[in-house]
């Protein structure tokens, strides 16, 4: 085993940070999209990620026998989870949020409802699983490439590539399709959209579908990568992804991607730094983020809101 010189440590931690950041980015995207379109901080989003992991676990359990628990089985489970949880996102929007939006309810009510949805989701899963951790077993091994003492497994590479692909697809969707155009338009001015004949409610539902599907994808990948899932796993990642979305500029899609990566990199850097270590890494990370926000309150890529009187 080669000794880990500073150069190799930096490379390995960069890789670690990139992978961690990918998960944060995928979940942060959902936060940003929903906020951008209806100005709601969807606290239930972290739990959508968790539900996605469990649906993927269930799907793998059902189809694993036929398709095996290698990449084919995982991909099928991923797709199933994305679709089903995307639909769940639509249901939540129609049942919990849209009625309040229709009545021009105060922002606080929407926020509380989101908290309620979050509690409902993870408590339901807790009861159904008796609070137990479920082992997400796949047949993936630890083969990978080694550059000196730096190890990168094929699984990690595929995760990062998959995340990048999903984000590229989202970018294409938002910027090159009519649906995406509608979403961006609604984020600017809802009433004008209605005047232009855009079905605002349907488009918002679509936003929830896409955001939830992405979170579900992250959930399944986390299950595959880390190997265990539990009803409470959405809490921490929801909190961090939300922070990442704000750092990158809430409402901005590239911002969410950037925010997630920055957060992941800061965390891994914090663990390695002397005087910080894993005990203080969160203090370190969030301290820097506070400074970032103080200097640029709307986030790195955020746009300042101009209120037209």
């Amino acid at each position: 085993m080669h000794a880990m010189t500073v150069f190799y440590i930096i490379i390995q931690q960069l890789v670690n940070g990139l992978i961690l950041g990918s998960f944060y980015s995928l979940v942060a995207l959902g936060y940003s999209m929903v906020y951008g379109i209806i100005k709601l901080l969807n606290f239930a989003h972290g739990d959508i990620y968790m539900v996605g992991a469990f649906v993927g676990f269930g799907a793998l359990g059902i189809f694993g026998g036929a398709l095996g628990i290698g990449w084919l089985g995982i991909t099928v489970a991923l797709v199933i989870s994305m679709v089903l949880v995307g639909l769940l996102g639509i249901v939540i929007h129609r049942v919990a949020y849209q009625p309040l939006l229709n009545k021009n309810a105060p922002r606080m009510s929407l926020l509380i409802t989101a908290v309620g949805v979050s509690f409902t989701l993870f408590n339901a899963v807790m009861v159904m699983t008796s609070g137990e951790y479920k082992a997400f077993t796949t047949s993936l091994g630890y083969d990978g490439i080694s550059v000196g003492p730096v190890n990168i497994t094929y699984t990690q590479i595929i995760m990062v590539v998959a995340t990048a692909v999903l984000m590229l697809c989202l970018y294409w969707f938002i910027n090159r399709t009519m649906y995406g155009k509608a979403m961006r338009a609604i984020a600017l001015d809802q009433d004008a959209c209605r005047l232009m004949g855009i079905n605002v409610t349907k488009t918002i539902s679509l936003t929830f579908f896409v955001g939830s599907a992405l979170a579900a994808a992250a959930g399944v990948m986390a299950g595959v990568y880390y190997g265990s899932i539990q009803f409470y796993m959405g809490f921490i990642i929801g909190l961090k992804a939300f922070t990442a979305a704000v750092i990158g500029g809430i409402g901005s899609i590239p911002g969410a991607m950037l925010g997630g990566l920055i957060l992941g990199l800061l965390e891994t850097a914090g663990t390695q730094l002397p005087f910080v270590g894993s005990a203080w890494k969160d203090v370190f990370t969030f301290g820097i983020l506070i400074l970032l926000l103080v200097t640029k309150p709307t986030g790195i890529l955020g746009k300042s809101e101009i209120e037209r009187m």
């Binding site: 670690n16 986390a222 965390e267 894993s278």
Partner: peptide, 11 residues
Amino acid sequence: GEQDFSSLVTS
């Protein structure tokens, strides 16, 4: 509850 120990492992 945090699942990612990769940076700790490297450290």
